[in-house]
Structures are given as C-alpha cells and as structure tokens.
Computed example of a mutant assay.
Amino acid sequence: MGFQRIMALHVHDEAEYQAYRDAMLPILHFYGGDFAYDFTVSKVLKSKTNSQINRVFTIDFPSEAVMDAFFNDEAYLSVKQRHFDASVTSATVIGLHETE
C-alpha cells in the first residue's frame, strides 16, 4: 500500500515555484515519493475553499509515515521556506488516502 496527497495551490510566481520543484525533487525521490499527476488549471468550477487555485497535483509516497518524514525533513523545510513560501499564495489539501 502506498499513500497519496492531493493538493491545490495558487502559484503567483511560476519561476520561483519551478525553483522550489527543482530543489525539492531530489529530496522527494530520496523518500521514494514522486508526482503522479500535475495540472495547471485555468478555471475552477467548484471548490470548498475561497482561495484561488491554478495548480492541482498528486504526490505519491510508499506510506503515510514516509510522507510525514518527508514533510518534516530539515532539508525540505529549508527549500520550502526559500522557494515555496515566496511563490505560492495558498495551498489546500484536497485529500489524503491509501493507494494500491
């Protein structure tokens, strides 16, 4: 069983967000994680949040414990602080679930 996180973001600085993705990807791969789906969206038809959304993606992990370890990793948190916080207005967790 794996574990998947479904996310929605409002990215306001594409170049800085790409720097975040480039810097965090080796850390994500170290934990056995990867992006399964990644969409840039232009129109949201329904949402439970008032935040704007222009990016939707899924991240797959081997387990929930591994996902938690990744998001608490000091190297990841440093990358997030440097690039993610400077490029993303809002982040919404759409879902978390086990995968087969």
Rank of each mutant, 00 (worst) to 15 (best):
D38R: 07
L77T: 02
H29I: 06
S78V: 07
S63D: 07
M24D: 12
K80R: 15
D68E: 13
R21L: 13
Y31E: 03
T49W: 05
I6G: 00
P62D: 03
A75N: 14
L9M: 11
V44D: 02
A15T: 12
S63N: 01
Y76N: 02
F70G: 00
I59L: 10
L96C: 12
M1Q: 10
D13G: 09
K43Q: 14
S51N: 15
L9F: 13
A19L: 12
V44P: 00
V44F: 01
R55N: 11
N72L: 05
M7H: 12
E74P: 15
K43V: 05
F30T: 15
L45M: 09
V66E: 02
E98M: 08
S47W: 06
A75T: 12
T92A: 08
R5T: 12
M24W: 03
F30I: 09
M7V: 14
H12D: 13
E74L: 07
A23H: 09
S42L: 03
S63V: 02
A23K: 05
R55A: 04
P26I: 11
A23T: 02
T89C: 02
Q81W: 08
M67V: 02
Y31R: 01
I27W: 03
N72H: 13
S87G: 13
T49A: 06
L28R: 07
F84Y: 13
K43G: 00
E16I: 15
S63T: 08
R21G: 05
N72D: 09
G2V: 10
A8M: 01
G2P: 08
S51F: 08
V66N: 04
D38S: 14
E14Q: 09
A36M: 02
L9R: 07
H97Q: 14
A8Y: 05
L96S: 12
T92Y: 09
E100S: 15
V56S: 01
F30K: 15
G32N: 05
F3C: 00
G32F: 04
M7I: 15
V88W: 06
L77I: 07
F35G: 01
L45C: 05
E64F: 01
I59S: 04
R5I: 14
V93I: 14
F84S: 06
L9V: 01
T89Q: 13
N50A: 12
V88T: 07
R82D: 14
D34W: 02
D38Q: 12
P62W: 03
N50L: 10
K46T: 10
V88N: 06
L96N: 12
I6H: 10
H83Q: 03
S87P: 06
F84W: 01
D85P: 01
I27R: 01
K46A: 13
R21M: 14
G95V: 09
A75D: 08
L25W: 04
Q81S: 12
F61S: 00
L9T: 05
A8G: 03
F71Q: 10
T40I: 07
P26D: 06
V44C: 07
K80G: 04
A69T: 10
E100G: 15
M24I: 06
I27H: 00
A65D: 15
S78H: 12
D73I: 13
F84Q: 04
K48L: 10
